[in-house]
Nucleic acid binder design. Structure first.
Lengths: 195, 195
DNA sequence: GTCTATAGAGCGATAGAC
DNA sequence: GTCTATCGCTCTATAGAC
């Protein structure tokens, strides 16, 4: 818990981020004070400013790290050739990745409006980069005649909204395993876009 | 704009709700102060307490009214017989209703965690009542062999997440008309759940 | 790197005059 | 029903001691 004094830079830094992540996800950015974060970490409020210039930057760093992690993981993913296989691969990747970090995902979707304009633009760009991954798959399938999608942009947003919705109810150890959930969604998504 | 004094109960009441709706949707419940709402209405902060006992109740009233409007509109809706027609009817109803009140929808989805526990329970119940409408359709179609849905509860949540996602990008007067958007989604939803 | 202390501002809600 | 004024509290961020 709380210590009186000392030097703990390498430990405290990650702890500040973890505490902020948890509290922002739980109560929302605007409802969480720097004092609450400090209490969770076990330091005084002033000490937080050794790790972030301000509260806004702390929020941005959490969201930015999350989006970069997402794009990195996607790039490391081995992608199959056929559109149908690529679509299932994307579906499973999205559900698995997002279900593993519910707090980051929740913040990334709920706190966009609390970003300063310049930060909002950066996060928006990263998000569009991710959406383009799916849209490229739908376009390929459309060209090859495997898919029947009148508007790839709308279909992209529809599929991502559906997949991200998993996070609102999925619990590890619940009625369905993660793999079963992936299967159910992979089937629905494939059927929704195939010819 | 601002007046000096007087009696305006019947005008001010709705104006308080409208102002709160707009500001909560724009900045989030926690980030909006009673003084901001009062400024938007054109009264002093203290006057707001003639129309709501506190800020929390103001939020709850907005969300509760929205959910009751939704269920009322659904009840007035004439529902066809066959599962496939009922599903298209639901899809179009959902998109049309929600696209007409983006602020209410945004608040109803984003501010759940800012509800007091007893209020949270009430709104959750109303939401489940609405979800049950769709689940009943999927169950009927499943029994008649029109649909192939391994888990009607999950399919329900998946479809609703997909449909509500329309609100994040749809703009009246944009590239697609509302009716075209309804058609695109009705096709995707039907294909996703049919056998 | 963390502490204590604090500046300067804003908050929700209430009291009492009109 | 609205105003002004205010209570008691919390907020972000900074300054300076250790």
């Amino acid at each position: 818990m709380a210590r009186t004094t000392g030097s703990h830079s390498d430990i405290t830094g990650p702890r500040v981020r973890t505490a902020a992540l948890k509290l922002f996800a739980q109560h929302g950015f605007a409802a969480v004070s720097m004092r609450q974060i400090a209490r969770e970490v076990g330091v005084q409020a002033g000490a937080l400013y050794n790790y972030t210039p301000d509260k806004q930057t702390l929020l941005f760093d959490l969201m930015n790290t999350h989006m970069c992690d997402l794009l990195d993981a996607r790039r490391k993913n081995v992608v199959p050739d056929s559109p149908i296989a690529r679509l299932e691969n994307f579906t499973r990747f999205h559900i698995r990745f997002h279900s593993q970090r519910p707090e980051e995902v929740f913040i990334a979707y709920m706190e966009l409006r609390n970003l300063a304009p310049e930060n909002f633009e950066i996060i928006g760009k990263l998000r569009r980069e991710y959406e383009d991954e799916l849209e490229a798959i739908l376009q390929q399938g459309q060209e090859l005649g495997d898919f029947a999608v009148p508007d790839t942009k709308i279909a992209t947003l529809a599929v991502i909204a559906m997949l991200t919705g998993v996070n609102t109810w999925f619990q590890e150890g619940g009625r369905l395993s993660l793999d079963e959930v992936e299967q159910v969604y992979a089937d629905m998504v494939r059927k929704a876009v195939t010819a």
